[in-house]
Design a binder for these strands. Structure first.
Lengths: 239, 239
DNA sequence: CGCTGTATTGATGTCTTTCAATGTGCGTGG
DNA sequence: CCACGCACATTGAAAGACATCAATACAGCG
């Protein structure tokens, strides 16, 4: 694995792929200019540790492309994923400089980083940026609570189906059958779901055997009937 | 169980027991006056359902006294607690009018409710109130993630010990041995921990047998050595 | 084409749940 | 004030789900 961090000249915000979904979605041109002046793009290779628990962090930022994981570990090595970062997600607290979680690149990944002190000032000067940050935080809180239901009450089969439905909904093509590339290894899936690798693997096999999904190599998943998979996940059909 | 809802004349904010910890902690006198005009106190008896999932809610608010639980349920009845509300905690989204969770009174409980539309306007007019709301939301998100670790990776014994440590830290007297009153039944503990009532009961018995806690009636817990209990909970000794 | 890390599959063990019975604290009404 | 009834809690035995340990298969890459 190449261990070189790539620092890139940050492209203009107006050309950014997450311009209309990230923290900057509601910014006007003058605020974008201010963001341009405090931002840096930076990339990591799959597998690299981006941040360790307890690190002092001079940055907050948005994930531009790829996938990263937020995890916590216990002293004996047991590890739980507490967040899955996909493009446009925001990372870090504007009001804290220590990382509460480890961040690892699940695929090659690029972040748009803002110097924390300057970003904090922007947040305080610009109510609609603060409101955007608040809305994104509340959405993350809802997602975390949804995941507490999965971790606390669902069976292994339901857990795996839930994760697959989530990924298919966010990243699948809409030709039939729908198809997505898993951004996670079996190990990362296990860490997300509070299971072991072996149990994840067995449940993937079982779902395939039952005709609910198809597998293409290690990462590709196909699904001809998302509603059926959703039923396996016991996802409440709330609107 | 008495099913009468009590509506109380709301006392002045300056005399409020949560004045310096709740959403209003950073408010100046003029903002407090504005809050006074939009607020109502309301109380519920232990066991009453305060809000059902999907209800339209004209209010957001703070819990003033007592304890309430935030839960989600699946169609087959499996239920998971996703939040435990103690005095000063904030409930509801200023930008949404539908409840995502059921709220139930775990003890007799009193809320300070704000009409949502007016509160939303206050948030937008008053950056430091919005920042306070943001900080509280981010703290809740951290707490939810901490709990994901408990749900996903800890053993039944560690789960029960974790909950007891949390409650002791927040509510215990500091005479020796420290003592707290559990605001939760065994059932509520089980729903919080992703366990069954029986398993919670067995672990409570085991912790008592091992000399880590004492039990006084159904709700009282004693602890002579919090560090030892914390070790059972495998709580990482982060500062 | 073989090597290395990842994934699958199988056999066994352990922990939590489930089902069932018993025990206990507390409020109500006699 | 005590006894009764009920909800809550505890305890036990058996079943089931997931983890663990171990072997094998497969994919991607030098």
């Amino acid at each position: 694995m190449t261990r070189i961090d790539l620092s890139l000249a940050a492209p203009s915000c107006s050309a950014c792929p997450i311009r209309h979904r990230a923290i900057c979605a509601t910014c006007e041109d003058d605020e974008l200019l201010r963001l341009e002046r405090m931002k840096t793009y930076r990339s990591w290779r799959v597998g690299q540790t981006i941040v360790m628990e307890g690190d002092v962090l001079p940055f907050v930022g948005s994930i531009v492309s790829g996938c990263a994981t937020l995890t916590r570990s216990m002293e004996d090595g047991r590890t739980q994923m507490v967040g899955l970062l996909l493009p446009s997600d925001f990372v870090g607290r504007h009001d804290r400089d220590r990382a509460a979680y480890q961040i690892v690149a699940a695929t090659d990944v690029t972040f748009c980083l803002f110097r924390r002190a300057e970003f904090q000032q922007l947040v305080r000067d610009t109510p609609h940026v603060m409101e955007r940050l608040l809305k994104m935080s509340l959405d993350e809180l809802d997602a975390a609570r949804e995941w507490m239901m999965v971790l606390g009450r669902k069976t292994a089969r339901e857990k795996v189906a839930s994760l697959l439905v989530n990924i298919l909904r966010r990243t699948a093509t809409d030709v039939h059958p729908i198809r997505a590339e898993l951004p996670l290894t079996r190990e990362a899936m296990a860490i997300y779901l509070g299971l072991t690798i072996e149990t994840v693997s067995r449940q993937m096999t079982a779902l395939r055997r039952d005709g609910l999904i198809g597998l293409e190599g290690r990462r590709g998943i196909l699904c001809a009937d998302l509603a059926a998979l959703q039923a396996e996940a016991e996802i409440d059909a709330a609107p």
